[in-house]
Design a protein around this nucleic acid. Structure first.
Lengths: 335, 335
DNA sequence: ACAAAATTTTTACGCGCGTAAAGTTTTGTC
DNA sequence: GACAAAACTTTACGCGCGTAAAAATTTTGT
């Protein structure tokens, strides 16, 4: 930087100011710097920069399972917005593993990021560990809420998901039973079950929850095995199956196909199947999957905006806001 | 560190050595350090450390499109191995965008990583830009080869993919036509077409390549649209369709379903469909997709190992090795 | 027990940049 | 044209650590 200062005829402190915020120097100076920059292509050493700044320009992004296209999609949205805001996203996936999530928090803490956008594992998260982290680093939770942790939570309204699907399915045929994992990793799953029960009750219908076994993040396989089991045992209480999420539904559809059960809403079909999330692949199942989609844009947009508000506010918010966005019903062929 | 040195009764330079490599100090000293460490939980400032080290302990991982579960899976494998080797993975996705890929390279260069594992966009990559990057940072290419770039290439043998699928399909029914994108983003697609042509020729069969329009990384949609078009026009030359990759096949299957075309290898079916890659979701299509799978483990394992060899070798290899792993045929219901 | 070898401690400097303080120049205003 | 405010330059120090060199200490081998 010393050399570049000499070459460009600008003092080093002014250069330092420029690199911190180009708008903070006079336009004429800025032009001179940028001209010199185009000739000598100097770049500040990020490590030296970050050492002397309390907070870096990095934003950590943590998702629980990146191999799930749903999270990959969210991550993509978040990255884009973070970059647009002049920050650098640093992406991590917990891979569904509690310890991995803790390791990521450690790594991230030592990076002194300006803030973190975190979708926690949920039930499997180490609550106190995350709490300690949030005390040090401005954190906004998204997708999956951990009560009281982080400066804010942004997600989708699980009740909105399920009430829409239940009402639609009820008004067009038999009321749905609800397929879910008995031990879901994600707290959203519990909220969806409760929303299902409440929605059915509101319609004066008898709820039927099918809690199937299975651990981990291989939801398709769990839905598939559950489907095989339920279909061969003829244990389905209704001809309409509402799955807690699309990945379960995808597996369930595969089982239906194998068992020769015709899924669809048209005449001649045996079963209707619907899901939740608006999974990127739900369009390409056979039949295409009726689902209720997250408002990806709104969630990612507001998550990032909230985080920047927190950062501008010195890392804390007067009170922890929870923002929930309604979901959108997508009618396709499966129900 | 100064304070911790005082607290632990160890000199600062010795501590510095310890953090660089715990094995480099005498066991008795190491124990004393680790004991003190457990009490005072001090951690070196990574920015100060990296400033004074030429190379960091970071390994960049770049994939072209993280929303593709195939790459998410590979990334997960690579991350794990990098961590096990005592390094920190830094994950990036080009999101199918040429400029994004270049930006990532810039970001990564300024991070002075010990090495980079890169799956380039392929045809869409800025070759000279990557070349300049590779000159500065030890880089191993994987999945998609750019001739001559990087210290090595590790991937799957496209010929092995296609020859297996062609032979299998031929020996069990009509020889396949080949469905591909007219303008594929990935160079593997070209190799697969050539492998198809060669395999058909070797069997003395007439090849039929269906090159369908479509740009970008929304392969399912492209396969779906192609399927609708081909099926409604009854333009398929055979009753066996071999797709260049599984994502195209997934879209194609959706089209078949909608058109009422029964896909499968059993009697009473109209069409056989197969793909390549061993996509994580290929198990759950309807019908389940016959495919030829990458040897994920071998590819990711050898990529990481190769990179570490390069790093130990001072960043360069005597000559650029290209390692190709054979694929494995997975028989399912679709063909 | 004693010299050689291996570690550790002391001391000191430098990495590349942020930033404060004081002085100098430029800009905008009446 | 005078004058205050804004922007810039000069000078200087510090961040947290790597690392070199020399001295002091401990360990090893016999």
């Amino acid at each position: 930087m010393e050399e570049f200062a000499a070459l460009s005829g600008i003092s080093r402190p002014t250069l330092s100011k420029y690199f911190h915020d180009p708008e903070s120097v006079r336009p004429s100076t800025r032009n001179r710097i940028e001209e010199a920059l185009s000739k000598h292509d100097y770049r500040p050493n990020i490590y030296a920069v970050n050492q002397n700044r309390r907070m870096t320009k990095n934003i950590g992004v943590i998702v629980p399972y990146l191999a799930d296209p749903f999270f990959a999609e969210i991550a993509r949205n978040l990255e884009r917005r973070v970059i647009d805001a002049g920050y650098s996203p640093v992406l991590f996936s917990s891979h569904g593993d509690r310890n991995q999530e803790k390791d990521i928090l450690d790594t991230l803490r030592s990076q002194k990021p300006a803030g973190v956008l975190m979708a926690p594992l949920g039930r499997n998260s180490d609550r106190s560990y995350i709490e300690a982290f949030c005390a040090d680093v401005p954190t906004v939770l998204f997708d999956s809420n951990l009560e009281g942790l982080g400066e804010a939570f942004v997600g989708s309204d699980n009740f909105s998901f399920v009430s829409q699907s239940v009402q639609y399915l009820h008004s067009t045929g038999e009321p749905p039973c609800f397929l879910e994992m008995a031990n879901p990793a994600n707290p959203n799953a519990h909220k969806r079950r409760r929303a299902y029960l409440a929605s059915m009750e509101a319609l004066d219908l008898e709820p039927e929850v099918l809690s199937v076994p299975g651990e981990g993040w291989g939801f398709e396989e769990i839905g598939y095995q559950a489907g095989l089991d339920l279909l061969t045992r003829r244990a389905l209480p209704t001809d309409t199956v509402l799955c807690s999420n699309d990945r379960l539904a995808i597996g369930f559809l595969a089982a239906c196909y194998e068992c020769g059960v015709r899924v669809g809403k048209t005449g001649g079909c045996d079963l209707r199947v619907a899901g939740h999330d608006g999974h990127p692949f739900s369009r390409y199942t056979s039949p295409s999957l009726t689902t209720v989609a997250h408002d990806y844009d709104a969630v990612s947009n507001h998550s990032v905006e909230t985080l920047f508000t927190v950062i501008e506010n010195g890392g804390h918010l007067p009170d922890r806001a929870e923002t929930l966005y309604p979901a959108r019903l997508i009618l396709r062929m499966s129900a």
